[in-house]
Amino acid sequence: MLDTKKSTNMTKTGLTLGPVLFNWSPDRLRDFYARIADEADVDRVHLGEVVCGKRQPFTDGVWPELIERLQAAGKQVVLSTLALPYNPRERNAVIDFCKAGELAEINDLTALPTVAGKPFLVGPFVNVYNEGAARFLAGRGATGICLPVELPIASVAVIAAALPEVEFELFAFGRLPLALSGRCYHARLHGLHKDGCQFVCDRDPDGLPVDTLDGQRFLAINGIQTLSSGVEAFCPTPEDLAKLGVRRLRLSPHTVDMVAVSRLYRALLDGRASRTETLAALKALDLPGELVDGFTRGQPGSARVEMA
């Protein structure tokens, strides 16, 4: 069943630059996206603060100019909503983002009543673990779904096969977003409460490493979010992706040269570079952690990439 679909429709695999998960200053965001607009080999860029509502007042002002800048460069812009809204300001921000006129990516079902009936995207923070959930969201207007990072690859294939009309996307590069909390770990580490956090998470633009007592690199914290220490590097061949029914990959922004990362992935997806070449080139970059890809191999997510 998978093979017939594969041969009939070999469109170019899309490449998305996901939302910045870290607390970057407006200036840093401007510089970052200016270079993305001009040089990155991605066709879609997500903007918006998805981790912490407290950061939103600082960045709200930059998005309009960045939308214009990126669209002028030919990128499709998507507005990603907050993953864990709960106070009224945050809830309103989610709804405003969905009504802004750009394509919205929902990361929590708070936004669903607002977007239902028109095309929207579903982010990796929404629990789509099976074809039934995907079908339900598609029925409400979802045209693309970035699946949860821990979803086994076998499930990805089943879901994508069941809904050929939906563009399925996988998280392919960056520290894996593993958990969210009501508690801010950056604040806790610095002896502060979330309400008076002093925005200390801005000191760690790739997240703050969390090691085990035996010195193993394990996780990273980013305010209320916990990420992997390892950097996901899912590097499939175009044939692998066609077999899976996955039509888009997501690169998650880090301080590493994301233009270089985007070019490596584009070459991989276009069949111009092998998996081994791509991984070797990624490894040579200044990454915050080891390359991992266990979730895409039916292993614990922390399993290291095997180069061969």
Partner: peptide, 10 residues
């Protein structure tokens, strides 16, 4: 919303 356990153990 937590995948810490699967990151470590699957």
């Amino acid at each position: 919303r937590c995948s810490l356990s699967s990151y470590a153990t699957g």
